[in-house]
């Protein structure tokens, strides 16, 4: 049984950052702005978050879960501010939305590495100490099965991710603002006629996506490493894939992220799964599973994919 718990924990490590970032992308795209800058925003958010942790830890100002929460906020705010650049170009200046997205993707790692090298005398990786793992949550960890699955050897970020999922669903699907935001991604001219400020809604969507993607960058790096090289291994692009795979809907995105996390877990832990290890296939075969499985699933489910209709189109009041 312990292997199941271990695999589940691994799956969450892969799935939660994807989930958070893809949900971010969802807000942006449902408001009508394509955000391919998720990767860049993750990197910059993660960088400042890690830098903040590094600073607090070396000066011994703060530590533990409180530091984690503050660092997540730092990452989110940096991501939100950074995404404003994308919002300004693609909403106000009506620019092609892939242009500013690409610019942000190129800018973020270069800027992070440049700052790190300049401050740390040519050393590019920012170190931090991982003191955020929760060995056991009191009381809750005593619940049979669930306690072992969720409340032992876990990270606070897992709960934050699930919390964000629920909030996102309620906000996007059940509130007035959420409905308005979605309408701007489907038919902005009609929203405008109904008295909704399309500009405001799209700014909201993009900044929310920046906030979540920035946080996602830190969530990605915290459990798996103790240094940050301004590299999130393509997770931003994978989150984009999860978003499309999840058909731009919160629960399906969660499903897609979990599916991806699970297949990726198999790829990296197959040696400890008895029947897979017995097959003695080359490691690459397992690593291919997440990508090939996604392609095959997409081939069967994409016929009625529902991208927001006005996605990628700059809002033009005079257009019908």
């Amino acid at each position: 049984m312990s292997i199941v718990y271990f695999l589940f924990a691994q799956t969450l490590l892969f799935a939660i950052p994807l989930l958070v970032v893809a949900l971010g992308g969802m807000f942006s795209e449902r408001s009508g702005v394509i955000n391919i800058a998720l990767e860049g925003i993750m990197i910059l958010g993660g960088f400042f978050g890690v830098f903040f942790i590094n600073f607090m830890q070396t000066n011994q100002i703060m530590s533990g879960q409180a530091l984690l929460i503050l660092a997540l906020l730092v990452s989110g705010i940096v991501g939100g501010l950074f995404s404003l650049l994308h919002a300004f170009a693609s909403i106000h200046l009506k620019a092609d939305q892939t242009i500013s997205g690409t610019a942000l993707n190129l800018f973020a790692p270069a800027f992070g590495l440049f700052i790190a090298k300049t401050i740390q005398d040519g050393v590019q990786s920012v170190m931090f100490e991982n003191q955020f793992r929760i060995v056991e949550v009191p009381i809750l960890s005593q619940i049979p099965v669930l306690g072992d699955l969720f409340f032992k050897n876990c990270y606070l970020t897992t709960f934050i991710g699930i919390f964000i999922l629920i909030i996102s669903y309620v906000f996007l699907m059940k509130t007035k603002t959420g409905l308005r935001l979605r309408s701007c991604g489907e038919n902005p001219q009609a929203s405008d006629a109904a008295g909704i400020s399309v500009y405001k809604m799209r700014y909201l969507g993009v900044v929310l996506s920046g906030f979540l993607a920035g946080m996602g960058g830190l969530i990605y790096i915290l459990p798996i490493s103790t240094e940050f090289n301004c590299n999130v291994a393509g997770y931003g692009f994978l989150a984009l894939a999860v978003l499309i795979f999840g058909n731009w809907k919160p629960w399906r995105i969660a499903g897609a992220a979990f599916f991806f996390g699970a297949t990726k877990t198999i790829a990296y832990t197959y040696t400890s799964i008895p029947f897979l290890a017995a097959l003695s296939l080359p490691a690459t075969a397992y690593k291919l599973i997440p990508y090939i499985a996604t392609l095959i699933l997409l081939a069967f489910t994409s016929k009625n994919s529902a991208a927001p209709r006005a996605e990628g189109e700059p809002f033009d009041k005079g257009k019908r």
């Binding site: 690459t284 990508y291 090939i292 392609l295 994409s302 991208a307």
Partner: peptide, 27 residues
């Protein structure tokens, strides 16, 4: 082909093909 016959978003299938290609090349 996936786009033409199965309406798969080109961005996502390209991202997947990137990783598949990279892993196959390593092998």
């Amino acid at each position: 082909v996936l786009k033409a016959y199965r309406n798969v978003n080109v961005v996502i299938s390209c991202i997947m093909c990137n990783y598949i290609g990279m892993l196959l090349v390593i092998e």
